[in-house]
Design a protein around this nucleic acid. Sequence first.
DNA 1: TTGATAGTTAACCATAAAGTTAAGTGTAAG
DNA 2: CTTACACTTAACTTTATGGTTAACTATCAA
Lengths: 139, 139
Amino acid sequence: MVNYQTAVLDRTFAALADPTRRALLARLDEEEGLTVSELARPFPVSLPAIMKHLDVLSDAGLIERTKTGRTVTCQLKAAPMEQAMNWLARYERYWTEQLDRLAAFLEEDSWQANPASPSSGASKRRRRSSSRPGRSRKK
Amino acid sequence: MVNYQTAVLDRTFAALADPTRRALLARLDEEEGLTVSELARPFPVSLPAIMKHLDVLSDAGLIERTKTGRTVTCQLKAAPMEQAMNWLARYERYWTEQLDRLAAFLEEDSWQANPASPSSGASKRRRRSSSRPGRSRKK
DNA sequence: TTGATAGTTAACCATAAAGTTAAGTGTAAG
DNA sequence: CTTACACTTAACTTTATGGTTAACTATCAA
C-alpha cells in the first residue's frame, strides 16, 4: 500500500541534507510568499548560490516559484516530506520508550518462567544470547 | 527546547538520501545482527562500495559495527532518525487534511464578509493581489 | 530612454560522493 | 603451515555539489 517512490525519497532527503536549504524551507514556513532576494538576504552566500539551492528544492518538489513582473515569489510545498516521514516512521519504535519498556520486559527472567500464557507475538522473536549493548535513553 | 543539531541532521539526511543505504537499514530492521558480507550479498555493487556506504551510516550514527573473529556484524541505531523526524514534524500540518480544510475555509469569501469576528492568526496573513496558482489537493 | 532593480545563466573551481580494481590484513580451517 | 575466507585499504575515475565572478535579460521608475 505504501509504495515508496525511491526517486522521491532520494531527492527529498538529499534536498534536506543541506542546512541552507533547511533554513530556506523554515523561513518559507514562518512567512509565506517570500521573494528570491528576500529569501537570500540573511545568508552569507551569493545570490546564484541561493538560486542553485532553490533549484534543488524545486526539483525535489519542495517549493514552487511564481513570477510576477520581475519578482519571483516562492511557496513551500511540503508534500514530498510526507513520504520521508512515512519512511522514517517505520523506525519510530526504536526510540519510543513504550517499546523500550516492552523489550525490557521481554528480557526479564520472570517472563519465561511462566509458560502457561504463550503471547502470540513473542514466539516470533528469537533472541540471540546476550549481544545487546547498553541502550541509550535520551531526553 | 528542541534544539536541532545541524550537523546531525546534515549527516542523517545525507545518509538517507541514498537508496542503497536505505535498503541496508531496512534489512537491518527486519533482521538484526547481519554481517557485512550478508548485507552486501543482495546488492549489485562491489564489497568496497558497500563498505563505503556502511562508513557513511556509521558516521551518521545509524549503525554500529562489532568485530567478532574475522566477521563483523552490524546493528541498527535509529536514534539520529528521531531528530530527522522531529525536524519534519514541523511541516506535518501541511499534509494533514484537517488543516487543508481550515485553509480552504480561511480563503472563502464568506469569511471576510463578516468583520465582526476578527480571528487573531488571520491578520498576519497579507495577501498579494491574486498571484496564487491553483492549490493541488492530493489523495 | 536611461538607468536601477530582480532574477537568471554561463563558465569556472574545489571538494566530496559513489563506484571500480587490486592488493593487503588477520583469523579460521585443512 | 598454507590456503581460504571476511573484511579493509589504496589508488584511481567519474560525476555531483556548493560555491564563486561576470555577464545577460527583463521590468519598473525617473
